[in-house]
Amino acid sequence: MFGQLMHRKFSVAALATLAFLVSASAFAITADPKLADPAQEARAVALSRELRCLVCQNQSIEDSNATLAQDLRIIVRERIAAGESDQQVKQFIVARYGDWVLLNPPFNARTILLWTGPALLLFVALGGMGLYYRRSKREIAVAAPVAPLSSDEQKRLGQLLKDGG
């Protein structure tokens, strides 16, 4: 009885999960006309994932339901169907909306700091660390050797140790 109940609960959860996954993937391309050629359609989807939706800025146009995103998805498909390369389609959109629409920003004069920044910071940090260690090592080497204890000091040390024990 209990086992049966568990079993049913599990299948309900599985069904719900399945339904969610199916609907989530169906959401991505609501009622858009698809390209007949599956290879071209795959290119259109891949390209749309790389283009930022300008209305809901952290989504790609593939994921967004905004009218503009829908229009841009249609434009991407029209251009692919017309035989343009991925690069040409991207250029068409970038010419209108700027590099900003590319979720993967290009490497150019304006983005050089964006791309090299992390490596640059790491380099500076490693350099600073190296310098710090070299200096502290030299300071230890330079420090005068400790003079041996005099007989008076030896006697006091013995006394202190005995008292402490």
Binding site: L54, V55, T67, L68, D71, R96, Y97, G98
Partner: peptide, 12 residues
């Protein structure tokens, strides 16, 4: 159809 707006880079 919004195409001219897209040519102008309008997003809102």
């Amino acid at each position: 159809n919004g195409r001219t707006s897209i040519d102008w880079g309008v997003y809102g």
